[in-house]
């Protein structure tokens, strides 16, 4: 059952591939909810755009930012991004809160769960994970403070320094630090969630402490695991966005749609990869780290967990 570092990394991808169902369902829910939200936003525009030669000229054969802004401006704009999107976002957020337990359970067992099992597990962990989200919001406060302080220091330096560059470098350094902290906090809470599933731990606070101990003791390997997948995600997104903007003609509406969905699906897949890798990492190392260290002459007990192919 124990895998090396690269084994956890590639094993995670392999696990996501084997258990695709838990990726496809949330993706389809995301697409459907967003589509409904967009339809609400766009509903008034349908007839309006269908029968205008300007639509074809400005929005199909080319894409006029001016025309889109005109649709969005005025006293009663026909197009407004935001409200419906935010509503959808919150619905999707609660949906994800509901299914994360099922996803982790499927990865932990490396088994295809029935729909009943999947949602039973989701329901079982829902309130635990909800409490963890509350803790996460609290943990993000210092990150926000650091971001604000960095910005303020950069402003102050900008006013005092002769060169404009120090302030910019402070901002860049601040952004890197904030990104690092965001990733670290997310990783900590990811491990807390994995602990909850692995140990059937009901206490959110105990999960957090276990997650923290794991992260503290194995920061290098865990962060490297998380960062590598994040980096691949950013790279893939950048490449696909580049292809979309630079190489897909504006009138290729269907190709644009497919590419846009690939971008979303790829992003979700990479996040699921992180989750699967964390589960595998936990199976390989986590329990040993949490249990009291065994005497040297006696081998540590090995827990019974599902093996990963």
């Amino acid at each position: 059952m124990s895998e090396g570092k690269s084994g956890v990394f590639t094993g995670g991808a392999s696990l996501v591939w084997r258990r695709q169902r838990v990726l496809w369902w949330p993706y389809l829910v995301c697409l459907l909810l967003a589509h409904f939200a967009a339809s609400t936003t766009m509903g008034r525009l349908d007839w309006f755009l269908q029968r205008s030669l300007a639509s074809d000229r400005l929005l199909v054969h080319g894409f006029s930012f001016g025309a889109v802004i005109e649709l969005m401006s005025g006293q009663s704009p026909l197009l407004s991004f935001g409200h419906e999107g935010m509503h959808f976002g919150f619905v999707f957020f609660f949906f994800m809160l509901l299914v994360t337990g099922g996803i982790l359970e499927a990865y932990w067992r490396d088994a295809t769960l029935t729909t009943m099992e999947f949602f039973q597990n989701g329901g079982r962990y829902f309130w635990r994970f909800f409490r963890l989200v509350m803790f996460l919001l609290v943990a993000l406060i210092p990150v926000g403070v650091i971001a604000a302080v960095t910005s303020s220091v950069a402003d102050s330096v900008d006013k005092k320094s002769i060169s404009p560059f120090p302030a910019v470098w402070i901002q860049v350094a601040g952004a890197v630090i904030v990104l690092f902290l965001l990733m670290t906090v997310r990783l900590w809470f990811d491990m807390a969630e994995v602990t909850a599933v692995a140990e059937s731990e009901t206490g959110a606070w105990r999960c957090l402490k276990a997650g923290f101990r794991l992260l503290r003791g194995n920061f290098g390997s865990l962060f490297w695991l998380y960062f590598r997948i994040s980096f691949l995600a950013w790279l893939g997104e950048a490449i696909m966005l580049h292809i979309w903007v630079r190489h897909v003609p504006p009138e290729w509406t269907r190709v644009s749609f497919v590419l846009g969905q690939l971008i979303v699906l790829f992003w979700m897949g990479m996040r699921w990869w992180q989750r699967a890798s964390e589960v595998l990492w936990y199976q390989a190392h986590g329990l040993e780290d949490l249990l009291p260290r065994a005497p040297i002459d006696e081998p540590a007990p090995v827990p019974e967990v599902a093996t990963v192919a």
């Binding site: 697409l31 909810l33 967003a34 939200a37 936003t41 766009m42 205008s52 929005l59 199909v60 509406t253």
Partner: peptide
Amino acid sequence: KAFQKLNNLCTFFDQWIG
């Protein structure tokens, strides 16, 4: 076509908010 194009973009942005 124009509607679908805007609708696709709108869906895409909403998915990202999610």
